[in-house]
Each structure stands twice: as structure tokens, then as C-alpha cells.
């Protein structure tokens, strides 16, 4: 199964990357932007999605300073960027 893990700084943890983006957007004319947080996304094929939380706790995130969100993209949704990676990958992700 194709899954997606979103990792971002926990609330209350200072995120200088997010701040830099928040300052840059108005400079480009995009006003009304606040509370920007920059994290990372991990996509993976897993045999046993039940083990994803443990993977997140032990390696994919540092639970002390980051929170994670697991998106199990089981539906017709192809993984982001799959097209660029070749049709074969996109095919596998479909049921």
C-alpha cells in the first residue's frame, strides 16, 4: 500500500523556515498569510500499514519536537509526483 507521512514542527516549537516563508510571501504581493509551518513529506510503499505509527515514532519523526500525520492513500489517488516517476509506479498505487 502507498502511504504518505506528513511531519511538521510541533505547536510551540519555533520554526525559522516557516517564518522565512511567511516573510517572503508578502514581499511577492501575497498578503494575508499567517502561521506558516514548514515540514516534510515521506511517501512509502508498506506491506503492513499497521506498523506505520511505530515507524513514525522510532525513525520518521522525532516525537519530542515533531508531530506526524499518516495519510493512507489507498483510493484511486495516485501519489504526488507519480507521473514524473513513470507510469509503472502510478499503476501500482491504484487498486
Amino acid at each position: 500500500m502507498r502511504a504518505r507521512v506528513l511531519v511538521r514542527p510541533k505547536a510551540g516549537i519555533l520554526d525559522p523556515q516557516g517564518q522565512a516563508v511567511e516573510r517572503a510571501l508578502p514581499a511577492l504581493g501575497f498578503g494575508g498569510v499567517a502561521n506558516v509551518r514548514v515540514g516534510r513529506m515521506i511517501e512509502l510503499d508498506v506491506d503492513d500499514p499497521d506498523r506505520l505509527p511505530e515507524m513514525c515514532e522510532r525513525l520518521l519523526s522525532n516525537p519530542l519536537v515533531e508531530e506526524y500525520e499518516i495519510v493512507e492513500s489507498v483510493g484511486a489517488e495516485a501519489p504526488v509526483g507519480a507521473e514524473a516517476m513513470g507510469a509503472e509506479v502510478a499503476q501500482e498505487a491504484r487498486p
Binding site: L14, P16, A20, N62, L64, V65
Partner: peptide, 10 residues
Amino acid sequence: PGALLPNISL
């Protein structure tokens, strides 16, 4: 205890 995060200056 704790964690090390990117420098505030990046």
C-alpha cells in the same frame, strides 16, 4: 533529554 533543531538563523 531534548533535541537539536536547525539554528534560528538557518
